[in-house]
């Protein structure tokens, strides 16, 4: 990508959720290790994909990264600001520069607010407007930018379809003129014909506004389309990270290989011809992850060492990181 300073740096990010019990005085009876030490950076105007199956911690990672959940450990730097030390005006500056788009277009818009109020909220919070008229103008402009009619200003979310609501979510995220947007599975709740619309919109906006994305998804095909680099997550840790084509053409980690081979190919002849690695079993609970390499109980090539030692996170080829004993 660029030689510029990365816009987002995440170093050994940990997010544990305590499991509490008790009536008046609560005590901790367990820990959900949702994110257990992940590190990556994102360069300006780059799209980093974060893929994994449900329960792997990708959504928690995205939310913790923005400080929506307080991190348990690790450093997060967004646009030069240390998020863990930020409060007051610095925190507001980060909130302005880093935004999020959610998966469910039905749950992510306040059903009792008009579109104008929803998209105008960041403008109001960050004092980016001085009058009501200015807000209306900006909201109209944002609606036009995401391909909606500015006349929809005073409508409520329930009057829109899923794809249109997702556009409203994008407009809200853009309102404060951010540099970095966490896209948390923004298309997985949409119909196939609508998915392409939203992905194209995100790409257009990136080209136009120089945005930086963290694109969280479970759909590997769409990730390949939109991302520059891809990180694969399994049970709270990143197991492989590489440039897009490198990862898809030369996957190193057995989990990445299995994941790729599980993706259905929309071509009957190719699909019949290819040899699939079908993973046995399910993802274990993050409440009690397996020792050693977390993937070893499902790994087709696991050896004795994998049961005990946590594999080191290392750079195999320039820019291609992997955590596996057998690579």
């Amino acid at each position: 990508m660029t030689d510029l300073q990365p816009l987002v740096i995440v170093n050994n990010l940990v997010k544990h959720f305590p499991v509490m019990r008790g009536i008046l005085i609560q005590r901790q009876v367990g820990t959900v290790r949702a994110v257990d030490g992940i590190s990556f950076f994102i360069a300006p105007s780059e799209t980093l994909g974060l893929v994994g199956e449900s329960g792997c911690g990708k959504t928690t990672a995205g939310r913790t990264l923005l400080g929506l959940y307080p991190p348990t450990d690790g450093q997060i730097t967004i646009d030069g600001h240390n998020l863990r030390k930020a409060h007051g005006p610095t925190m507001m500056a980060i909130r302005r520069k880093a935004q999020i788009i959610f998966q469910d277009p039905y749950a992510s818009l306040n059903p009792r607010w008009t579109i104008s109020a929803i998209i105008g909220e960041p403008l109001r919070v960050h004092h980016l407007i001085s009058s009501e008229a200015e807000r209306t103008d900006r909201v109209r402009e944002l609606l036009r930018l995401v391909g909606l009619s500015p006349s929809h200003l005073n409508r409520f979310p329930h009057e829109f379809s899923g794809g249109q609501r997702q556009r409203i979510g994008v407009a809200r995220a853009l309102a404060s003129d951010p540099k970095f947007i966490v896209c948390d599975e923004p298309i997985s709740a949409l119909d196939v014909s609508i998915q392409a619309q939203v992905v194209n919109l995100l790409e257009d906006l990136q080209d136009r506004l120089g945005l930086t994305y963290l694109f969280i998804a479970h759909d590997l095909s769409m990730v390949r389309h939109i991302c520059d680099r891809v990180a694969v997550m399994y049970l709270g840790v990143i197991v492989e990270l590489a440039a897009r084509d490198e990862l898809y053409e030369h996957p190193l980690h057995p989990y990445t290989k299995a994941l790729l081979s599980a993706v259905p190919i929309p071509d009957p002849k190719k699909d019949r011809a290819r040899r699939r690695t079908i993973l046995a079993g399910d993802v274990p609970s993050p409440l009690n992850p397996p020792p050693g390499c977390r993937f070893h109980p499902r790994c087709p090539i696991a050896v004795e060492k994998c049961h005990q030692d946590v594999p080191e996170w290392r750079e195999v080829i320039s820019g291609h990181w992997v955590a596996c004993h057998l690579v």
């Binding site: 939310r63 923005l66 929506l68 925190m91 507001m92 909130r95 302005r96 880093a98 935004q99 999020i100 959610f102 749950a107 992510s108 818009l109 306040n110 059903p111 909220e121 960041p122 919070v125 960050h126 979510g169 809200r172 404060s176």
Partner: peptide
């Protein structure tokens, strides 16, 4: 939508 509001500040 509450998370979104928090993310907005």
């Amino acid at each position: 939508f509450v998370l979104a509001a928090r993310a907005t500040g």
